[in-house]
């Protein structure tokens, strides 16, 4: 007899977020299995044992097995393509750190393009505010995407902070620019 204690704690996969027993139906099965083995070896041993695999196969007809196999291959290919695409956008995306003059000698710093790097923009804005003890807010940019506006002339500090703290962002993809909208087209 099992004594039930509530709430039950269910383990969720660190890769696909489903309970690990369902990882086999996603497109990231291989990565899921690796994660499980590294983080919860006993669960991995149980789920991926020879016995478990045979039992799974036994409950499906040969035909259904073939279809399921084909389906999961398709899914895996799709997931791979998606992650390749994400890597591609990441490689080509630029983060712009813009120094904007508000009044004479008063500046704000705007940071755009963080979303391509899978960062939680709101959290980054909060971190900026905390780190530099200043106002920091998120606004939507008309062309799509988010912009963080930080009070003060902090371009270089933010550049360093991003390089230091967000390891997924290559330094080459960061660019500091100056925005002087007051002097329009001073030719």
């Amino acid at each position: 007899m099992v004594t039930n204690v509530y709430p039950k704690t269910v383990l969720y996969c660190g890769v696909c977020t489903l309970p690990p027993e369902y990882c086999e139906f996603g497109g990231t099965t291989k990565k899921c299995a690796e994660w499980l083995q590294a983080n919860h070896p006993s669960v991995h041993a149980k789920l991926y044992s020879q016995e478990a695999i045979e039992q799974n196969l036994a409950s499906l007809s040969v035909d259904a097995q073939k279809r399921a196999e084909k389906d999961s291959q398709k899914k895996a290919a799709k997931a791979e393509a998606a992650s390749a695409r994400a890597a591609e956008t990441r490689a080509t995306s630029k983060i712009l750190i813009k120094r904007i003059e508000r009044n004479k000698r008063k500046y704000v710093t705007a940071v755009q393009g963080l979303e391509a790097f899978d960062l939680d923009i709101k959290k980054v804005a909060k971190d900026f505010g905390k780190k530099f003890a200043t106002g920091s807010s998120v606004t939507k940019v008309p062309g799509g995407g988010d912009e963080i506006t930080v009070q003060g002339d902090l371009s270089d500090d933010i550049f360093d902070y991003i390089v230091e703290n967000y390891k997924d962002v290559p330094e080459d993809n960061l660019e500091c620019v100056e925005d002087k909208k007051k002097k329009k087209a001073d030719g």
Binding site: N4, Y6, P7, K8, T9, V10, P19, Y22, F25, G26, N56, S59, L60, A64, A68, D71, S72
Partner: peptide
Amino acid sequence: HKYPDAFHRLRIDRGAIRFVL
């Protein structure tokens, strides 16, 4: 998942899982 037996439950066969997901 926290309170599994507080609900009416049914079960699908293994073949149906991938369609549901």
